[in-house]
Design a protein around this nucleic acid. Structure first.
Lengths: 219, 219
DNA sequence: ACGCTTAGTTACTGACCGGTAACATTCTCG
DNA sequence: CGAGAATGTTACCGGTCAGTAACTAAGCGT
């Protein structure tokens, strides 16, 4: 991990210098941890990218692991903000909320810096004893609940299953986008809309008479 | 990375000692890299788990990165073997091949040591310049081709899209299984069968009269 | 028994990294 | 201004790790 490549930190509007140190450190950590991973990035590198030094870093975080926990928490909070925005910008219209979420997914997946879900990536690097693990699992559970609510509100059939399906598709796409941009991940949005349409249709069937229902199951 | 925890290496039948060193090293690397990640595992630890020493390791691999490439290649080869087995054990029956693949997925996801796709995990830890990157992308492409062929042979509608969908679901499930076993990943097999049935049905719709259409799948 | 190849042993280097100590500087606010 | 807190600077410790050197021991075909 040489330090010169960190000069190109994507600063939050380049007003980095005016913010308090703890905030600068979290911004730098967010960028470096995501781009290079947890282990390869040293505290010195983060401090430097945060326009400060290691001592100050250790005054705000008692250890690197502690900083990692804060990093995860920061990501989780940002995730929640996205959800809040989706809900608040589309009050009383579940279907529009769903569309907004799919648009968000599209944004994420077409971002050329995308390197997978930062939280999932962190989970790969952290063993099961790490203190950040709790935050990770809590985040995943919250996200799942949000999705389920989305589908339940939109009156889809089996919202839990659909939510999981959509969630896994999204995560699968994110993790795979770094293994060749032209791969399977490139058409996820299309898949999502397919899935949503199918679920919708299934829901509609629910409300019709039984005679119209059939179960065909290959295998 | 302390060394005592490595004594429990899952040996390949415990005949580890009788195999040539290079093979032992790859077996050990496979186990340790997968369980703890690429960065936290040192060459000494691998050598020890392989019942040999660092010098011998460096006679067979010119660097740790070189060993990592071999590790990835080994994983890719094993993946190909699985596909070969699926194809050879179900000659001339595309549908049974698909079922066999879903069974395989189920096996993977219910394995209690599952910690995500080893290759995807490695991709998370390796930057885009790493020599192993080429092997990773090649592997993903081959795997995608295999899946597409599976669906094409089984005469599904839009095999490419379906293959990608199924692939992403699987990968998403693997990456998420380590963030809480009870999460979304637990019902992937069910999702896959859903998806397969839906696709099958869509295909049939293509070739039949409208009156034969059905669209119901209770879960 | 011979020599050649391969494997094991010990010990080392140089770099990096997490974390701390001690001290100097700047900021903030009464 | 002046005092206390927050921040910056330098230097260091101890540990780990990738990689190498030099030498010894073991296998193996002739």
């Amino acid at each position: 991990m040489n330090t010169s490549q960190f000069n190109a930190v994507r600063r939050a509007g380049s007003d980095l210098a005016t913010r308090p140190p703890r905030e600068r450190i979290l911004i730098a950590a967010r960028d470096l941890f995501y781009r290079f991973g947890l282990h390869p990035v040293g505290v010195d590198a983060i401090a430097e990218a945060a326009l400060t030094n290691k001592m100050t870093l250790y005054r705000h975080f008692k250890s690197k692991d502690d900083l990692i926990v804060a990093y995860i928490q920061q990501l989780a909070d940002e995730g929640e903000e996205v959800w809040d925005r989706i809900f608040s910008e589309n009050p009383d219209d579940p279907q529009k909320r769903l569309d907004a979420w799919v648009d968000f997914v599209e944004d994420v997946l077409t971002n050329k810096f995308e390197r997978g879900c930062a939280i999932a990536n962190a989970a790969v690097e952290l063993d099961s004893e790490h203190p950040a693990r709790a935050a990770i699992e809590a985040y995943k559970r919250r996200k799942r609940k949000r999705l389920v609510k989305l589908f339940k509100d939109a009156r889809y059939h089996d919202p839990e299953l659909l939510a999981d399906e959509v969630f896994l598709l999204f995560e699968g796409a994110r993790i795979n986008i770094q293994c060749g941009k032209k791969g399977p991940a490139s058409r996820v949005v299309q898949m999502l809309r397919n899935l949503l349409a199918t679920g919708q249709q299934r829901h509609r069937l629910e409300n019709t008479t039984k005679s119209e229902r059939r179960t065909d199951r290959t295998s």
